[in-house]
Amino acid sequence: MHFGGATFSVNEGEFVVILGPSGAGKSTILNLLGGMDKPSSGEIIVGGEDISKYTDNQLTNYRAENIGFIFQFYNILPTLTVLENVQIVNDIVKKPKDAREVLKEVGLLKHESKFPNQLSGGEQQRVSIARAIAKDPILLLCDEPTGALDSKTGVEVLKLLKKQCDANEGANTVIIVTHNSLIAEIADRVIRVKNGKVESNEINKSPKKIEEVEW
């Protein structure tokens, strides 16, 4: 994806939604922000540091320490139990959250010994959220997190994401990439992209509560 002058900024602690149709470049933005991809030109400043200049090793550390990822298809490891899927971050993060505590937060503690294939889609996505927040990341990047879920489960997932954003005295930033414009209604900031360009970057002056949105 080529971005011609796609400049935008996001403040710490914001719940951001990036909106756009398929092929607009939403996921590319997420990949660049998450240090999964490198831009051919330009800068990506996160917390005052230009991560576009990072080496592969620096990017690995950046992902480990700062970023939490949530994917549409969960990407949890099928041969690890729920608890192990969360505990996995203990291997890479210096101060991880207690895995059981996090599972309690997402309401999955009673399923801790189950394998992913024994869970529903929503439960699997909650495992993925638990794994992401166990790292206690400053930036949570979510790629169509509700895309594979029914609306009721989707709401549950969004609540968890919002909760994560409000935690840590509101210092955590959550960026959601989606084509579902309804989600934009609950966001602090909405960025619209089209054809690899940022069309608008607006602050939502009166974000709705999740319950207020008609899903």
Binding site: T60, N61, A64, I88, I92, K135
Partner: peptide, 16 residues
């Protein structure tokens, strides 16, 4: 391969 890329995204180093 798919699981490795997940681990990579999570921040696991290549060495690990």
């Amino acid at each position: 391969q798919y699981q490795f890329s997940t681990l990579k995204v999570l921040g696991f180093s290549d060495k690990k």
